[in-house]
C-alpha cells in the first residue's frame, strides 16, 4: 500500500517554480529519502503534503485520502519535524508537549507516558523553559512533539541540524525502532551521508523535478565504480581501448586507475590478464552519485 502518493503535483509561487509534475509513491513501512540541495523543492513538497501551502496543480493522497479534502483526519496519524523549530514564548517544554498532545484523539495518559519516555531517552529536562533551551535541545522538543502520538507516518524535513553526532545516532536508532513497528518515514535532507545510513529508497530532486527514484543499493550499483590497480609493470593504454564505460583513465609506471560503469565481467576479464600486485574497487558514496545527477 502506498502511504504517500503524488500525481503531477505542482506548486508555483506566483511565477516562481516550487515543484513540477512530482510523482512519488512511498510504500508502507519504508524509510524514504528525499535529497536535493537547498531550494530544490523538498520543503515545498512536504509543506504541500501537510496543507501549509496549496498545490497549483496535480494531486496527492496520504493513507489513500486526498490531502486537500481530509487534511485534519490524515494529520491525526502524521508526526512532523520541520528543519527549524519555533515555539511559543514563556512555555516550559512539558507545557508545549502537553499542548501538542492535546490535538490528538489518543488517551492523554498514554501521551504523557510517551513524552516522559522520549524525554528520558533523549536526555531532555522537561521542566525548563523553551526560551532557555539550546538549539539542539529545542530540536529534541521537536522530535518528541513529532512522535508523542505514535504516528503511522513520520515526516522529517532536514531534522538533524543542531543535534550532536551522538544525539543524531540516538535519533536514528529511535527512527529505526519506529520503522520496525511499521511506521513509514519520509526523510528529507541535503546531507547525503545520513540518507545513506537510514533510507531504503531515495528520490533525487533537482529544480523542482524528481530526476531519479531508486533504492540506495541500486543507485550505487548502477553508477560508476572507481578501480585502482597496482601493477608489476607499466600497462599499455591499448589494453583498455574499446571498452565501453571507462572514463578518467590514468596510467603510471605501477598503477592504473579509472572509473567504470557497465557490465562488471567485461572489466574483470581485462584485469585478470594483468600482472597485479594489488587492487582496490571503491563503491561510490551517495555524494558521488548525487553529483553525477547534479553536475
Amino acid at each position: 500500500m502506498n502511504i504517500i502518493e503524488t500525481k503531477k503535483l505542482t506548486k508555483y509561487y506566483g511565477d516562481t517554480l516550487g515543484i513540477k509534475d512530482l510523482d512519488l509513491d512511498i510504500q508502507q513501512g519504508e524509510i524514504f529519502g528525499f535529497i536535493g540541495p537547498n531550494g530544490a523543492g523538498k520543503s515545498t513538497t512536504i509543506r504541500t503534503l501537510l496543507g501549509l501551502i496549496h498545490p497549483t496543480a496535480g494531486s496527492a493522497t496520504i493513507f489513500g485520502k486526498d490531502i486537500t479534502k481530509f487534511g485534519p483526519e490524515i494529520k491525526e496519524e502524521i508526526g512532523y519535524l520541520p528543519s527549524e523549530v519555533f515555539y511559543y514564548d514563556n512555555m516550559k517544554a512539558i507545557d508545549l508537549l502537553r499542548y501538542s498532545g492535546s490535538f490528538y484523539k489518543k488517551d492523554s495518559k498514554l501521551i504523557e507516558k510517551r513524552i516522559k519516555e522520549l524525554a528520558k531517552y533523549l536526555d531532555l529536562d522537561l521542566k525548563r523553559k523553551i526560551d532557555d533551551l539550546s538549539y539542539g535541545n529545542k530540536k529534541k522538543v521537536g522530535i518528541i512533539q513529532g512522535l508523542l502520538h505514535e504516528p503511522k507516518l513520520i515526516i522529517l524535513d532536514e531534522p538533524t541540524g543542531g543535534l550532536d553526532p551522538l544525539m543524531q545516532q540516538k535519533f536514528f536508532d529511535l527512527l529505526r525502532e519506529e520503522n520496525k513497528k511499521g511506521v513509514t518515514i519520509l526523510f528529507s535532507s541535503h546531507i547525503l551521508n545520513e540518507v545513506q545510513k537510514l533510507c531504503d529508497r531515495v528520490a533525487i530532486i533537482k529544480d523542482g523535478k524528481i530526476i531519479k527514484v531508486d533504492s540506495i543499493r541500486s543507485l550505487a550499483e548502477n553508477t560508476h565504480k572507481r578501480f585502482m590497480l597496482e601493477t608489476a609493470v607499466r600497462v599499455d593504454k591499448s589494453r583498455f581501448t574499446g571498452i565501453k564505460g571507462i572514463s578518467d583513465l590514468v596510467i603510471t609506471d605501477n598503477s592504473v586507475s579509472f572509473l567504470f560503469r557497465g557490465h562488471i565481467n567485461e572489466i574483470t576479464k581485462i584485469i585478470a590478464s594483468l600482472n597485479l600486485t594489488n587492487m582496490l574497487v571503491e563503491e561510490p558514496d551517495l555524494e558521488e552519485i548525487f553529483m553525477h545527477y547534479y553536475v
Binding site: 501537510l50 496543507g51 501549509l52 487534511g71 485534519p72 483526519e73 490524515i74 494529520k75 491525526e76 502524521i78 512532523y80 520541520p82 527549524e84 523549530v85 519555533f86 515555539y87 511559543y88 514564548d89 501538542s100 490535538f103 490528538y104 484523539k105 512533539q145 515526516i155
Partner: peptide
C-alpha cells in the same frame, strides 16, 4: 509572525477551527 505555523498547522486541526 512567530513562525509557529509549522508547529500548529501540521496538527490534526482545520484552518476553520
Amino acid at each position: 509572525r512567530d513562525r509557529t505555523s509549522e508547529f500548529l498547522f501540521p496538527k490534526p486541526v482545520s484552518r476553520n477551527l
